Computed example of a mutant assay.
Amino acid sequence: MTYHMPAEWTPHERTWMAWPGPNPTFSSAAELAEAREAWATVARAVRRFEPVTMVHGPGQADTARELLGPDVELVERELDDAWMRDIGPTFVVDEEGRLAAVDWVFNGWGAQEWANWEHDAKIASHVADLAGVPVHGSLLVNEGGGLHVDGEGTVLLTETVQLGPERNPGWSREEVEAEIHARLGTTKAIWLKRGLTADYPPHGYGTLGHVDIVAAFAAPGVVVAHVQPDPAHPDHEPCRENIAFLRTQTDAKGRPLEVVEVPAPTKLRSEEGGWADYSYINHYLCNDGVVLCAFDDPRDEEAAEIFGGLFPDRTVTLVDARPIFAGGGGIHCITQQQPRTR
């Protein structure tokens, strides 16, 4: 049986999310409250276009319902954190249109010292069960934010994630590619060298280089890529190198990649004072919509225009993502699509 992961712009059955609870990522009551408001705003923005199911921890239902409103489905399961893109399953479809779920090994983004993952390591199988689909287990340590597909055989990856010693020591590049291709139905991997500076220690919570904050497919043969225009920021040169590299690449169909540059916000520092990894690339495509990160920045509207041009038939919704980035991710990191198969 051959499965493939559909591109994010194909129709969805629903979106899965996970509700923030008390944990090291949200270390104070104020931070947790701010995170919940942000997660709820994203959920409501997505709900305008498709159903949303929010997984919450024990005793969290009342708070979740109060902020989410009546239109978001709630499901209780034990949780450690709230990043459904990474802890949830990667949904795939076979030739007959039947849905299944890939359950990667989750080890807290490379067993980082601040992370807990006893419960989150089981969420992918819980979500698959709730969706009523079979689970395909993988031995690869991986997360949904560490990959991006075009639905036509190409996958974007970063070397510091799947090839890093924190996740898959002893795996060769060829072995990692073979496993990813077998699970996602891809045939060509395009490897970026690394992610953004603030995604690595000692800059706080991070993933060690997830690709979905750096580059993403917007259509077959078209990639949106993060640009840091200011040479004072340490991401300036790595972004320049990423874009130059992407422009030398072809996809699985042999098409040269068209790279659409998306400038970073003008803010060089985050609300917490460190280097910002604020990025518009970490957006989410839902049915007829684009939910786009905003940062109360002059470039928010510029980014909205770029994405509006790429997706002219979708409504672009800007959501303040600064509280989400404070926890180590963005809008794409907290959402996971379930493809529509009928």
Rank of each mutant, 00 (worst) to 15 (best):
Thr250Leu: 01
Trp275Cys: 13
Thr248Asp: 07
Glu271Gln: 11
Gln228Asp: 05
His236Ala: 06
Leu246His: 02
His233Thr: 08
Asn242Asp: 14
Val290Asn: 05
Asp288Trp: 04
Asn287Thr: 05
Ala264Tyr: 09
Arg269Ser: 12
Arg240Cys: 05
Gly273Met: 08
Leu257Asp: 00
Asp251Ser: 00
Asn242Met: 04
Thr248Leu: 11
Ala252Pro: 07
Cys293Gly: 14
Thr248Ala: 03
Pro229Arg: 00
Thr250Met: 08
Gly254Gln: 03
Val262Gln: 07
Asp235Arg: 09
Ala294Met: 07
Asn287Glu: 11
Ala276Pro: 00
Glu271Ala: 15
Val262Ser: 09
Lys267Arg: 14
Gly289Gln: 06
Asn287Arg: 06
Val227Thr: 13
His236Phe: 14
Asp277Ile: 11
Leu285Met: 09
Asp297Lys: 08
Arg240Phe: 03
Asn287Phe: 01
Lys253Asn: 06
Leu292Arg: 02
Ala264Leu: 05
Ala244Thr: 13
Val291Thr: 08
Arg247Pro: 03
Ser270Glu: 02
Pro234Arg: 02
Val227Gly: 00
Asp235Met: 06
Asp230Pro: 01
Tyr284Lys: 13
Asn242Glu: 02
Pro238Leu: 03
Gln228Met: 14
Glu261Gly: 13
Cys239Lys: 03
Pro229Met: 11
Pro298Leu: 10
Arg240Ile: 02
Glu271Pro: 01
Tyr284Thr: 15
Ser279Phe: 05
Asn282Pro: 07
Leu257Ser: 01
Glu258Leu: 12
Gly254Asp: 00
Arg247Ile: 09
His233Val: 07
Arg247Gln: 15
Asn282Thr: 10
Cys239Trp: 01
Gly273Thr: 14
Thr248Phe: 01
Val291Gln: 02
Glu272Cys: 00
Thr266Pro: 00
Asp288Tyr: 07
Gly273Phe: 05
Tyr280Leu: 07
Trp275Thr: 03
Lys253Val: 00
Val260His: 01
Glu241His: 13
His233Cys: 02
Asn282Gly: 05
Leu292Glu: 08
Asp230Leu: 07
Asn287His: 05
Tyr280Gln: 09
Thr248Ile: 07
Gly289Phe: 04
Val291Ile: 15
Val259His: 04
Gly289Asp: 12
